[in-house]
């Protein structure tokens, strides 16, 4: 629980995921929901590592707070990179014939599908992505 700031580089992926997983464990999430939080976290963090800072180095800040009465977790991920709303994409048609399936968009689809709430906003030069998972 709490806050961590990490450089937006590949080696930060597991520390970032572990921070979120450990916060969820503190709140008593079961393994299935921790897996889903891990999926969501990987998606969001990888996006920042790969795309937020095309011109060089940057950081990301991850904050985990319990929901009221400890009935879940709210994860807020902030970067100071280029304006980018990962939710601003159509969801893939998961029932499309495999030959016609698009390769992209699946991660964000899973993020939306596994979390109880996902939101994005841009504020003071920051991308702020928040996802919520209930116990």
């Amino acid at each position: 629980m709490g806050k961590v700031i990490l450089p937006a580089v590949k080696n930060s992926l597991y520390p970032a995921i572990d921070f979120i997983k450990n916060s969820a464990k503190e709140l008593g999430f079961d393994n299935k929901k921790i897996y889903e939080l891990e999926l969501a976290s990987e998606e969001v963090i990888v996006n920042i590592i790969n795309y937020a800072y095309p011109k060089g180095a940057g950081e990301m800040e991850i904050t985990c707070v319990p929901l009221q009465d400890d009935k879940g977790i709210k994860v807020e991920v902030v970067d100071w990179g280029i304006s980018f709303n990962p939710l601003d994409k159509p969801s893939p048609d998961i029932n499309a014939p495999i030959e016609e399936r698009k390769i992209g968009g699946l991660g964000i689809y899973l993020l939306r599908k596994t979390m109880d709430d996902v939101s994005y906003h841009r504020e003071d030069g920051k991308n702020i992505l928040t996802f919520v998972k209930k116990l």
Binding site: E42, I103, G107
Partner: peptide, 11 residues
Amino acid sequence: YISSAGLRVII
């Protein structure tokens, strides 16, 4: 554990 990156490889 498999994430969307792994699923994409299978697709």
